[in-house]
């Protein structure tokens, strides 16, 4: 194998890894804010992908507005979901493990909703980033690989700025750390947690849109991605912002290279084997979540 091919594999793995990193980030955001592990994160991604299919692929709305409509719709869904479903359970002190089942229930609900509305046949729409292979030196790349990396980099920088430097961002981190004290600051904890869900589902929508050039849409696609995202979260460190990113990218690159060199059939066995090793020998993940990072 040449260096160029390896490099190309790494770039493709990076694009896939970023797709895993986004739901992983969504999981960590919600985990920090509310102590819930959201099993529905992958199906939210699916839903985002299908909304884009309708808005962009069927209604032929141009890509950028269609993308924005999809993200906004999913964000609203997240906000409402928190206010109507999850926050009331948290406030009534329902056992977190029972709420966890609530997220599983929600996952199954979305999956079947998608199935009923859009059917089981795998669907695609025109690759919005173009399907002309690009050649850079010895590298052959699809444009979406570069676009995915670029869009997510911009998005994460904005998110970082929001959480670090704006009053609402700081308030979200405050709620994730100490709920009583944040009430005393005059923060509406319920709204901040809903805002965290909004961010998380918007991020899921972004990954649902960005994945379309890589995988065809199926009602169950989110399930497999969610499992990878969960592996990413646990390998990176649950609750850690950088852990989610690095975990996702690591999983994406590792599985791509493994599939190319060894055997694609064993790809998932390899990844989850590594996950088991992590759980055994470094259960906190690469980055044990630190209070400073709690978002």
């Amino acid at each position: 194998m040449t260096v160029a091919i390896l490099f190309q594999l790494i770039l493709n793995g990076l694009a896939m890894g970023i797709i895993y990193a986004l739901p992983a980030l969504g999981i960590s955001l919600i985990w920090n804010a509310s102590g819930l592990f959201n099993f529905a994160q992958g199906d939210l991604l699916t839903l985002g992908g299908y909304i884009m299919l309708t808005v962009f692929g069927k209604l032929n709305i141009p890509f950028i507005p269609a993308f924005m409509i999809t993200v906004a719709a999913m964000g609203l869904l997240g906000y409402a979901l928190s206010q109507i479903y999850f926050y009331p359970m948290l406030e009534n002190k329902v056992n977190p493990q029972i709420i966890l089942i609530g997220t599983v229930a929600f996952s199954v609900f979305i999956r079947n909703l998608v199935l009923v509305i859009w059917g089981t046949t795998p669907q695609t729409y025109t690759n919005p980033f173009g399907s002309q292979v690009m050649q850079i030196g010895e590298l052959y790349l699809m444009p979406h690989v570069i676009w995915i990396v670029a869009i997510v980099t911009v998005l994460l920088s904005l998110l970082q700025y929001f959480l670090r430097s704006t009053m609402v961002g700081i308030a979200m981190r405050a709620v994730a750390q100490r709920q009583t004290a944040s009430w005393l600051m005059g923060i509406r904890n319920d709204r901040m947690i809903a805002l965290t869900f909004l961010l998380s589902t918007s991020i899921a929508a972004v990954s649902g849109v960005l994945i379309s050039p890589i995988l065809p849409l199926t009602p169950s696609m989110g399930g497999m991605i969610a499992v990878k995202a969960m592996a990413a979260v646990l390998i990176g460190g649950l609750g850690s912002f950088s852990g989610a990113l690095i975990g996702g990218v690591a999983v994406g690159i590792a599985e791509t290279i493994f599939a190319a060199i060894v055997d694609p059939a064993y790809r998932d066995i390899f990844i989850f084997g590594i996950l088991v090793l992590f759980l055994l020998f470094r259960p906190g993940g690469i980055f044990k979540a630190q209070v400073s990072e709690k978002v």
């Binding site: 009053m167 700081i170 981190r173 750390q177 100490r178 004290a181 944040s182 630190q290 990072e293 709690k294």
Partner: peptide
């Protein structure tokens, strides 16, 4: 009940 993961500045700001 200060916010342990926020800086002194951020605690005051909030």
């Amino acid at each position: 009940l200060v916010f342990p993961g926020l800086s002194v500045f951020e605690n005051l700001k909030i």
